[in-house]
Design a protein around this nucleic acid. Structure first.
Lengths: 219, 219
DNA sequence: AAATGATATAATTTTGAAAATATATGATAT
DNA sequence: ATATCATATATTTTCAAAATTATATCATTT
């Protein structure tokens, strides 16, 4: 009855995507098919399938007859992505709050709690918990927008979140308290069903993260 | 020096995408690999590559180990897509107008002129010119947003436009005069650099098209 | 020394076939 | 008749190798 990830192709897709997001596969690096084939234990055609998907989503750049590359980091791209995330996520959170119900509220409380636990860990050891934190940060943001009643919007948002977070995962320092404070404010606005405030606080949150993340271009 | 469409894979991608958009490959129909292989003269792996890309973009649904299907038509999906198109395109047109320059203005005039020619043809023979009209309608809408200075936004918008237009291409009647009048208003607002009015007129335009397109569910 | 061109090497693209899985068919039992 | 199971067929998934194209190497010419 399982419906996901039974094929080598989709498992490989997840692995490569993860390695791109967390920088194990570095920005602008060439993705040589033969290397990937060996590193991920899949055949060439299977690797090509996953790279085609990743290139559609914008994690990978395909140059015909010259091969595949991890998308480069550029200041302009980061700014575009952050602003697009604001457009989608702020729109979605408003719809979501306006449709909010008991179950949705429960999910937010749970997600916020788990995120908070990871935030404490992050204070202690950023590098160690980065990957797990990312999981719960996404879960929190998804819980907030999950009631927007548009699966097209949700799918798009998740891709934009991942594209944004790839940049943030490259920053060496954790933003800490400030970020946690913002999460708290968004959380409270959502529970109060104040969609305007939630949206504005979320926008501020993403813009501050952007500012922090832009540091990767200073040196 | 050419940089696009030299591979069988990308040519096949264009062909299949076109056939989905114009309904030659019908909504919800099974995309049997062996059939596609014969109809598009490409090998199985190549076909799979294109289907993986199309599934990332949401034209095709991939069910693991069960195969690929053209995405179904549903009322809810159409409404989601139209609203997402409004969100992206209205945002982009405002940015574009605010950054507008001479060259951009020239492109809009040219695109509007070509679209207008096709609109006249459409009055005479809808079925015959549908495909060509779609090309110039997209060109017009793209010209309007082209100055938004976000390639991420532009790429996303084009996908949403195509996803929307697949539904519209399934409508039997041309909307005619009303639609042409709306195009004219958007055009004039853009030339007057009135981004607020352009955005509002564009939203109305898309909502009216949505209303018209929803007819495909009445029978 | 720089540029050009020929050759060799490496990489991508495409194919056809093997392996794995799902679906259809038909026989048997309730 | 309906359900269950086993078998056969069809389809998807995966692979490995051939064909094509790009890149690197090296000799030759200016």
């Amino acid at each position: 009855m399982e419906e996901k990830n039974n094929t080598i192709s989709s498992k490989t897709y997840d692995l490569i995507k993860k390695d791109i997001i967390f920088g194990k596969l570095k920005p602008a690096s060439k993705l040589k098919l033969d290397n990937l084939k060996n590193n991920y234990n899949a055949s060439l055609s299977t690797i090509r399938e996953t790279l085609n998907r990743l290139s559609s989503e914008g994690f990978v750049k395909a140059e015909e007859q010259r091969g595949f590359f991890v998308n480069s980091f550029t200041k302009g791209d980061l700014i575009e992505i952050a602003n697009l995330r604001i457009l989608l996520e702020c729109h979605a959170i408003k719809l979501s709050i306006d449709n909010g119900d008991t179950n949705w509220e429960g999910n937010i409380v749970a997600a916020r709690h788990k995120l908070h636990l990871l935030e404490k860990e992050m204070q202690k050891d950023y590098k160690k918990f980065k990957e797990e934190w990312k999981k719960y940060d996404l879960e929190f943001h998804l819980a907030l927008v999950s009631n927007c009643r548009s699966s097209n919007l949700l799918d798009l948002h998740t891709i934009l979140y991942d594209k944004y977070i790839r940049y943030q995962m490259a920053v060496k320092e954790y933003r800490g308290k400030e970020s946690e404070e913002e999460h708290k404010k968004i959380f409270e606005a959502a529970l109060n069903r104040n969609s305007k405030e939630a949206s504005e606080t979320l926008e501020t949150h993403i813009l501050k993260e952007l500012e922090h993340t832009l540091k990767i271009f200073n040196n």
